[in-house]
Amino acid sequence: MFEARLVQGSLLKKVLDAIKELLNEASWDCADSGIQLQAMDNSHVSLVSVNLRAEGFDKYRCDRNLIMGMDLTSMSKILKCAANDDIITMKAQDNADTVTFIFESPSQEKVSDYEMKLMNLDQDHLGIPETDYACVIKLPSGEFARICRDLSNFGESIVIACSKEGVKFSAAGDIGTGNIKLAQTSSVDKEEEAVIIEMQEPVTLTFACRYLNMFTKATPLSPQVSLSMSPDVPLVVEYSIGDIGQIQYFLAPKIDD
């Protein structure tokens, strides 16, 4: 028996919004410790990893490890039927071929349930090595979304250059070039408005705008985003999911031939 109840159901709706453009289908691995999803996009350029801790749920039970392969378009359609303040419960029997989503209004006066067929997915699972990144940049997630959107007007790629002076995002294309520089904030009233740079050594890497823009669909999940970079390894774009977990996007850099 698997059952996970989340009073803040809107978080799950936001998680789906954050992955459904990148992934058509994926497996949710349910275990005693929580729920995890790892999947590559169709072109295998990026990898998405979602981690929802068992303690983050208001009720969590997982008697046996369970892999639930889901069509994310279908799952998203179902979650669209939940109101933002609904309590969401996911339920499945051991060895089941369906999962049930239960939505309860905060007053408990309306209860809906939707059953969805599960899929058998044969997906590669990649091992992500522990890495000490040369640069970790924390910035407001809305600012990052704005930068990616603005620079996408100029070219297909964004160059992210991090040094002790700050971080510079640049794009170049037919209409010209764009550069956006962010300095580390000296003092801020609110922590989520801060730009914080932890740097061991300067790093400059180039990434595809298309993917960065898809990652920023996670913006509603968290006021801050962190970008971790090291030379010649994938960028990690990480958003926290309330207090219950985090979503990480790994994007392979573009490399000079």
């Binding site: 295998h44 350029v45 990898l47 990649l126 790994f250 392979a252 573009k254 490399i255 031939d257």
Partner: peptide, 14 residues
């Protein structure tokens, strides 16, 4: 010219 590698170039199947 820069080219896009796949993520599999960096992370091995576990």
């Amino acid at each position: 010219m820069s080219s896009q590698k796949t993520i599999k170039n960096f992370f091995k199947p576990s």
